[in-house]
Design a protein around this nucleic acid. Structure first.
Length: 249
DNA sequence: GCGACAG
DNA sequence: ATCTTGTCGC
């Protein structure tokens, strides 16, 4: 994969800022405001898994889980060829095209199973330009999206790493949160201790058509383990698909 | 000046 | 993202 020219990055930044104009940063759905998310029945999860030494070939997964039972009611696994490199801050340009296609296939094939919200493996507003992959996918599909990252993306204004690490270790009970504040003073995301047994938090941020508060509550309510079940299932199933494929079964 | 940077 | 099993502990 060739290094990305500065020209391309400027082009991508420009596309992000245009799409960002269409982003909705608050709750728009009734279930988002309802007690116990009443009215929410389907939560989607997306993820990509790769072959070990392969930058190009990947398996894109879209799963839909029932809510609140968190049982898989739909899955689509599709081998795809990635054409963009991974560059921090521009993950969406590498992964989003295939996720959008998967959503569109579902909308056409089985409209009744289209998720009411998608949990995305990566960040939403917790991003250099407050427009991570969860925002990107949300705007392109106009579906509510939440960003859940397993690792912290360094964003300008976040506290010094050492200090932040201490704060994160202080998270005691499941559901505990710690705000991640950008340089403007705005809270861009929340570190969330998503389950009792996890040492390391997940990093939740709003993608599209959700408030940060709702994003955090929803993420927590989808966690049987550290990684919320929709993303975890997309992850498990896509890497299993890859594993079988590389064996030749 | 360097560190720190989703997947 | 990926390379990787068992193992220690609640």
């Amino acid at each position: 994969m060739a290094a990305a020219p500065a020209e391309l990055l400027r082009e991508w930044e420009s596309r992000q800022s245009k799409l960002k104009e269409e982003m909705i940063d608050h709750d728009t759905e009734d279930w988002e405001k309802a007690e116990g998310f009443r009215g929410l029945e389907r939560v989607g999860g997306v993820d990509l898994s790769f072959i070990k030494g392969d930058e190009v070939n990947a398996c894109a997964a879209l799963v839909v889980l029932s809510y609140p039972d968190l049982e898989v009611v739909y899955e689509e696994l599709q081998m795809v060829c990635l054409n963009a490199p991974y560059i921090p801050g521009f993950l969406a340009f590498r992964e989003t095209p295939f996720l959008v296609e998967a959503v569109q296939r579902l909308q056409q094939k089985e409209p009744s199973l289209v998720p009411q919200v998608i949990l995305v493996d990566g960040n939403g507003s917790l991003h250099q330009r407050e427009f991570g992959v969860a925002c990107h996918l949300g705007v392109l599909t106009d579906l509510p999206c939440v960003g859940v990252a397993k690792n912290l993306l360094w964003v300008d204004g976040l506290e010094e790493k050492i200090l932040l690490k201490e704060k994160l270790k202080d998270l005691q009970e499941a559901g505990g949160t710690y705000p991640l504040t950008g340089s403007s003073g705005k809270v861009l995301g929340m570190a969330l201790k998503s389950c009792e047994r996890s040492t390391k938090p997940v990093y939740v941020s709003a993608g599209h058509r959700v408030s940060l508060e709702t994003a955090v509550r929803l993420t927590h309510s989808c966690c049987n383990f550290r990684v919320p079940e929709p993303i975890r299932q997309a992850d498990i199933r896509s890497r299993e698909y890859i594993r079988k494929k590389s064996n030749g079964s």
